[in-house]
C-alpha cells in the first residue's frame, strides 16, 4: 500500500511541477516544450511501476515497466527479426509499391477528367472502409510469408495516397496554369515544375497517414496467418502464452517503428515543402 500512496504523491508533485513550468516565464522555451511532456510520461511510467508492485498485480494482467524493459533487453535478437520481417519486408515494401501505384494512377486520373470524376468518389469511399478485412483473402492468395503482408499494405495505402495526390494536383490556380501556357510549357513541364510541387503538401499528408496504416496492416495481417516470425505473430502467440511482457516489448518496438517511420516522412516533407506556410517560422 505505501507504494500506491507514493505513486499518487509522485503524481501530485509532478503535476504541480508541470503547472509551475507551464504557467511560468519559461513556458515558451524549447526546453519546457520537451520537458513537460517528458515529465508527464515518466510520471505515468513510475506510477505504473509503483502501483503494479504496490498492489502485487499478477504478471498476466499487467507487467511492470521494469519487467518489460528487462524482457526487451533480453530478447533483442528476436525483436530485431520480427522487426525486419514485419516492418522492413512487409510494411515498407508494401508502402513503397502502394505509393508508387497510387502516384501512377493519380497521373492517369489527372489526365482524364472523366476518370477523375468517376474514380474520386469511389476512392474516397474505399479509403473510409476497413480494408484490413482483406487480409484473410490476401493471405490465402499470397501465402503466409511477407508477400501477403505487403499486399495488404498496398491495398491499405493505395486509396488514401491516391485521393490526396489527386486533390493536390488540383491545387494550382487558373492564373498559374495560364502562365505556364504562355511560356509554351508542355503538359509534363507544367506537371513537374508547377503542379507536382504545388501538390506536395497534400502528397505528404497522404504519405503520413499511410505510414501508420502500413504498420497496422502488416501487423494485423499476421493475425490471419504468418511464418513463425513477425511482430503480429509474436503478439498473438505471446498473448496465447500469457507472456504479456513480450507483448509489451513488441508494442514498444511497434511504437518506435511507427514514430520513426512517421518522423522520417515528416523530415522529408520539411525538406521538400520548405516554401509552404505551415513549414515556415
Amino acid at each position: 500500500m505505501p507504494l500506491v500512496i507514493a505513486a499518487f504523491v509522485l503524481w501530485a508533485a509532478a503535476w504541480w511541477l508541470n503547472i509551475r513550468i507551464a504557467n511560468g516565464p519559461a513556458a515558451g522555451s524549447q526546453a519546457a516544450k520537451l520537458g513537460v511532456p517528458a515529465i508527464f510520461g515518466l510520471t505515468l511510467l513510475a506510477m505504473w511501476e509503483l502501483i503494479v508492485r504496490g498492489l502485487d498485480l499478477p504478471m498476466v494482467i499487467l507487467p511492470a515497466p521494469s519487467m518489460i524493459a528487462e524482457r526487451f533487453a533480453a530478447s533483442l535478437p528476436i525483436l530485431w527479426q520480427d522487426f525486419v520481417q514485419t516492418v522492413v519486408k512487409g510494411a515498407l515494401s508494401g508502402y513503397v509499391i502502394g505509393c508508387l501505384a497510387a502516384f501512377g494512377t493519380a497521373i492517369l486520373v489527372d489526365r482524364w477528367d472523366f476518370l477523375r470524376r468517376g474514380l474520386m468518389p469511389v476512392g474516397s469511399f474505399v479509403a473510409a472502409l476497413p480494408i484490413v478485412g482483406t487480409a484473410p483473402i490476401l493471405v490465402m492468395w499470397y501465402g503466409f510469408d511477407w508477400q501477403s503482408k505487403a499486399a495488404v499494405v498496398v491495398v491499405m495505402v493505395f486509396f488514401p495516397v491516391l485521393v490526396n495526390i489527386t486533390a493536390g494536383l488540383q491545387e494550382t490556380t487558373q492564373m498559374q496554369r495560364d502562365q505556364m501556357k504562355t511560356w509554351a510549357a508542355s503538359y509534363w513541364q507544367g506537371f513537374w515544375k508547377l503542379r507536382l510541387p504545388a501538390a506536395m503538401p497534400f502528397v505528404f499528408n497522404g504519405l503520413k497517414i499511410s505510414s501508420t496504416l502500413a504498420l497496422i496492416g502488416a501487423i494485423v495481417a499476421e493475425f490471419f496467418g504468418s511464418p513463425i516470425v513477425g511482430m503480429g505473430f509474436r503478439i498473438s502467440i505471446s498473448v496465447g502464452q500469457l507472456a504479456l511482457d513480450m507483448v509489451w516489448a513488441e508494442i514498444v518496438v511497434a511504437a518506435i517503428a511507427g514514430s520513426a517511420f512517421y518522423g522520417i516522412v515528416a523530415f522529408i516533407e520539411r525538406k521538400v515543402t520548405f516554401w509552404h506556410p505551415s513549414q515556415r517560422g
Binding site: 504498420l215 501487423i219 511504437a255 511507427g258
Partner: peptide, 17 residues
C-alpha cells in the same frame, strides 16, 4: 503515429482472464 491497434489482442485476453 503508432499502431496502437496492436494491443487489441492483449486487452481481449487479459480481460478474458
Amino acid at each position: 503515429t503508432i499502431p496502437i491497434l496492436a494491443i487489441a489482442p492483449m486487452i481481449i485476453v487479459v480481460l478474458n482472464s
